[in-house]
Amino acid sequence: MAPSFALMTVVSYIPLLLAVVISVTALSIFTIGDVWQAGLVGLTNYLDVLNPSGPLSVLGPLRNSVLFTVITTLVAVPLGVAAAVLVNQQFPGRALLRTVMLIPFILPDFVTALIWRLIFQSGTGAADQVLRFLGIGADYNLWLIGPNAFWALTIASVWSAWPFVYIMALAALQAVPAEYYDAAEVDGAGRLRRFWSITLPAIKPTLVLALCLSVINQFNSFTLPFVLLGHPPAEEANVLPVEIYTTSFTANDYGHASAIAVVNLLVLLIPIAYYLKKARSDEN
C-alpha cells in the first residue's frame, strides 16, 4: 500500500501539480533558456483557449473529443458485452474465438492506426475498393480529411476499443456463480430474462467501470488519431490530445498546452464523478 502510493506521488501527483503550475505561466520555447523569465499570466491561458472566437480556441476539438468518445463508447460497450456473453456459452471453437477477439486489443495503437490508414486510402485502400466492388458510392472517397475523417477515426477506434470491454465483461461473467443460472432455469426463466435479471445486474459494477474506463481511454487517445489522420489533422477530427500536442510542439507554447490539458482533465472529471457516485451506491 504505502510503497505504491509513494511511487504514485512522485510519478503522478507531483507532475500533475506541476502541469497546473505551468498552465498559468507563459512558458514557451523562447523562455526555455531561463524558465524564470516565463512569468505568471494568471488565467489568461484558460481564457484564450476557452474563448469561442479567439484564434487559440479549443472548443472545436473539445466538441470533437466529446462526440467521438461518446459514439465510440456507445458502440464499443454493447459489442464487448455481446462478445463476452457469446463466448461464455459453450461451443466448439470457442477457445479460438476468444483468442481472435483479443487481437484488436493486443495490437499496438500505432499498428492499428497504420492498418486503418491503409484501409482508408482514397481509391486504392480496401474501404474504397470494397465499396466500388459492391457498387456503392463514388469511385473514391476522402476518408482521412473532411467530415469523413471523424467517422474514419470513430470506426478505427471502435475496432480497437471493444475488446477492452469484452475482457472486463468476460471476467465479470465468470465470477457470476453458476447456481444463479441453475436456479433461474429451474424456475423456468427464459434466456433473455436470465440475461436481464441475472447476468446484467451481476456484471453491472464491472460494466460501469468498463464504461468509465472506455470513456477515459477514448478521450485521452492520442496515438490512434495522430497516426491515422496525420498532422495537422482534419479540423473535423481534431481531438484534444492532438491539440495539446500541436500546441506543445508546433506552437512550442507550453503554457497554453498545459491549460488545454487541465481542461481535458476537468472534462473527464464528469465521468469520473459519476462513476464514483455509482460505485459508492453499489457498495452500500
Binding site: 503522478s12 507531483i14 485521452n220 500536442y245 487541465v262
Partner: peptide, 15 residues
C-alpha cells in the same frame, strides 16, 4: 482515477 485519467502528454513535461 485522477492519475489514471491524466493524459500521458500532460505528465511528460513535469515528469
Amino acid at each position: 482515477l485522477a492519475c489514471y485519467t491524466t493524459p500521458g502528454i500532460v505528465l511528460l513535461i513535469p515528469l
